[in-house]
Each structure stands twice: as C-alpha cells, then as structure tokens.
Design a protein around this nucleic acid. Structure first.
Lengths: 244, 244
DNA sequence: CCAAAAGTGTTTCGTATACACCCATGT
DNA sequence: ACATGGGTGTATACGAAACACTTTTGG
C-alpha cells in the first residue's frame, strides 16, 4: 500500500515559545487525538515525510496540521538515527497504524522553531489540536527519544542564541527592555545584571527605542523597543561573538 | 534485489586537512575508480547507508573503504534534501549502477571531519584509493550538490572553530605557535597579529609549552606546544566565546 | 502612601588592538 | 654575513562586572 510517505525519514519539531512570567515553553501534542487515555502519550509535532517533499516543507506542513501554526522560523539542528530509537513497542505499533505503513527504522531530522507565544492561545491550540505548552522544566516522559530531542534542541538554541538575533522571534514586535532581559536569562539559564544589560543593549544600533510606553500598568510604564533586522544584517558583517 | 542499502539516505563527508604551506585542503575522490575518463568526475567520500546502520558508523565505514582513513573526528553539520539534488543524469545513472538499486530521491546527511594531513600521504591515498587533497580555493566542479556541501561545511567549521578546540585535530600532537596561528588564519580567512595572538594563547592554561624545539631548521628553532584536553574540559565550563 | 516594576552612573579590571625590532640557526 | 622565520613589550581604548537608589504609575 502506497501512502505517499517515505518509510525511512521523518521530521520532528521542537516549538519554543516564551512566556513573560513562566519562561521558555515547548509545544507538545497528544498522540491520541480523540481519546482521554491514561497515561496520555505526549510527543513532539512530527511526521514521516512525503516522498519527494522537502524537509522544511514537511515541517511546515506538520505544524500546520497538528497545531495550526504556519509560516514560522524553522532551524534544522540535529539528526537522530539510533536504529533502536523507535523501540517502544506500543508507540511503534501506533506509528505503523497511524501512518498506514510498515515501519522498520526511521531517521528523524530535528528542527526547532521559535514562535510568539501570545499568537497561539492555550485554549485554541488545546481545543482544535490537542496541543499544549509545557514549561521546559516540567516536561513529562514523551514517546520514543523525544525528550532527548528537546534537550539537544535547547542546547543548540542556547549556543545559537549567542550569535544570532533569535529572541526577537519569540517576542512581540514592540518589546520592553525587561522582556529582552528575561528572555535572555531564560534561554541562557543564568541571571544577568539589569544595568549592565541595558548599557550593552543601548549600544546596539539595531535595537531601536520608541517614544511609546506601556499603558495601564501599576508601576512606571516601560519604554518599547523594536529590532531593526536590516540594520542588523548590515552591521553584523565582520563580527564575531555575542549579538545579544 | 536487496543490496542492504537504504535507498533514501546517504552520508557524505567533507574531510579537511591542513598543510602548513598551502592551508586548508579537502579530500576528493574520483568517481570512476579504474578509469582515466576525461573530464574526471570528482566527489566527496560518501555512500548510501546500510539498513539499520548508524549514520556515524556509515561515515566511518565509507572513509575506511574509500580512503583508508579510520577512527577520526566526525561532526554532523547539515542535511541536504533538495528532491532535485541528484539531477545530473549521468551521475545519477552511475549511482544506480554502482549501488545496484533504483534510486529516486536521496537525503544526505553531511559530516565534516578533521584529520592530520601528514598522516595520509598524497601518493598513498592516490595509489590505493584514487583520492587526492585539493586546496580549498582550487576545488573543481563536483557531482551533484557536493560543491555546496563543502561550502556549507566550511562555513560551519568556521563558526564552530571559534568555540571548540578543533584545530588540534588538524595539527600534529606537538605544534609550534606559528602553526597554530596559520591554521587559525586559514580557517577564519583573515590575518591575525602575531604578537597579540601569542599573548592570547599564552594565557590559555590548556596550551602547554614544552622545553623542546625544532631541529635542523635554517632559522631560530620554534618551541613546541601541546594541547591538554583534560585541562580544557575542566576549564571551559561556564565559558562563552573564543576558545582559540 | 504604598506596592511594583522601570530606569539610571561610576569605578575597577581585564582583554583587544596597534605597532617595530632583535634573536637563533643553517648555509 | 646573510637569509629565514621565531620571538618579544608597551601604550591606548573599549567592554565586562560589580554595585544601590530614585522614578513613575495605579490602586
């Protein structure tokens, strides 16, 4: 039976979102769409690729199908190829059933993706797609090697965060200095000095202060900033090391 | 016909070597082992993987078979998945013939590898395996997308070189300060200040000066240094940015 | 007036950069 | 003696780190 799937290659996507209060989150979906099985089997969004489909197209397709998210930043960061990685008997059976093909060994190409969390409300995702955001330090046991994929994705994100302007993909267009600070702390997993951080950011010509402030907050309203990607691209040539 | 190959997945390896006088080199092999066809069709070492073989094992196997090189540093750095990447009619035919299977679309997992060039003499490689070292800026047209793979590999090497102690895999165990300088210049593609470079390196506790010098050279004999990987591993925790 | 988060300046230290000449050896 | 690459020191400037209080708003 030809289902159009390539039986050897899949993509899995670690979708990161950032919540001001709770830090980094990852989007997980329930393997069993309709049922309230216990324990729930959670997994990363992912799928076998379609024959002759580009991997990045496959990843976009999967995200659209499983979460409604479309047209977002994707970065291929690792390949998981352990021949025993689909060892889990029941989960493997589920995969064969749901894909309609006999699976022997699947090499998966892993992507991470960065989305503006506030664009994707919990209830919407949950209702339509059985998907939910999980705090990074609160991730349950997932099927196959998906916990390992998240760990590696986070590790790569931490590295690339130092040299690429990634945080602006997680923040609203207009963001405050403290949001930028918190996201940096949250990704790097360390505390940063408020004053020194602001000084460093203020030196960056591609992070532009607006004459616009928060409204209706019960404290001094924070100034908004925007990221100028053109200026960034122009300036970063001949640059190594920290970007943020 | 079952040849044991997975018809959808291959590995290709960009083997980098460093020559004191000529800089970075890449190992290419002649597609047609026995013939003296013109024009010669050159390619990266690579192969379809064997069913249930780990990718890194596959890469090691390929290097052993095609170049005699074994047990070396390998880093997976990208995936090439364009469905049209095997477009070249004649090369595709050759691939089908040589692998003994019908090939439709192959996703290749690309590795780079760093070897001590002086361990693999030109004549040995050339005689036994039809393989040769090519200067980076003197690479001919290769089959499929192999030029693109090299370009991407070099780009990733440049980035990772800044944060990982990679150059010691290209240098002899005992190396001189100028060798380290030249390799850095050669990988980064820029000139570095001799005095400032030495000062920086001398601050690194894991690069250890020996009381041993060059012999029989027609100039002031250079001191030898070694890299202490234990010290490096111990020290680098909690460190970002430049390593070399 | 209180709570809550935003925002601000100075000093110290280490590292990056720029730059030009003497040294040790083989032939 | 000369050719060849090896090796050295100082001054300046910039960014990293440490550190505590005032400001603005809503309730």
């Amino acid at each position: 039976m030809n289902t159009g799937f390539n039986p050897h290659i899949s993509v899995d996507i670690v979708v990161f979102g950032f919540d001001d209060n709770e830090g980094l989150k990852v989007l997980l979906i329930n393997r069993d769409k309709d049922e309230q099985k216990h324990p729930a089997r959670l997994k990363l969004p992912g799928s076998l690729i379609i024959i002759r489909e580009r991997l990045s197209d496959s990843a976009q397709r999967v995200l659209q199908e499983l979460t409604g998210i479309k047209d977002i930043y994707l970065k291929q960061f690792a390949v998981f190829d352990n021949p025993e990685r689909l060892k889990d008997g029941e989960d493997l059976k589920w995969l064969c059933d749901s894909s309609g093909i006999m699976i022997e060994r699947v090499v998966t190409i892993a992507y991470y993706s960065l989305v503006k969390l506030h664009h994707y409300s919990e209830t919407e995702l949950s209702k339509a797609f059985n998907a939910r955001w999980y705090n990074l330090d609160d991730i349950p046991d997932l099927i196959f090697d998906h916990n390992e994929i998240i760990a590696e994705g986070l590790s790569v994100l931490r590295k690339e965060f130092l040299t690429e302007p990634l945080c602006f993909k997680l923040l609203p267009k207009k963001f405050t200095m403290n949001q930028l600070l918190h996201i940096s702390e949250s990704i790097l997993g360390i505390e940063l000095d408020n004053r020194n951080f602001r000084k460093r950011i203020n030196r960056l010509e591609y992070i532009i202060p607006l004459n616009e402030h928060q409204k209706g907050v019960a404290h001094k309203p924070a100034r908004y900033y925007i990221f100028d990607s053109r200026k960034f691209e122009f300036i970063k040539r001949g640059h190594t090391g920290f970007i943020i």
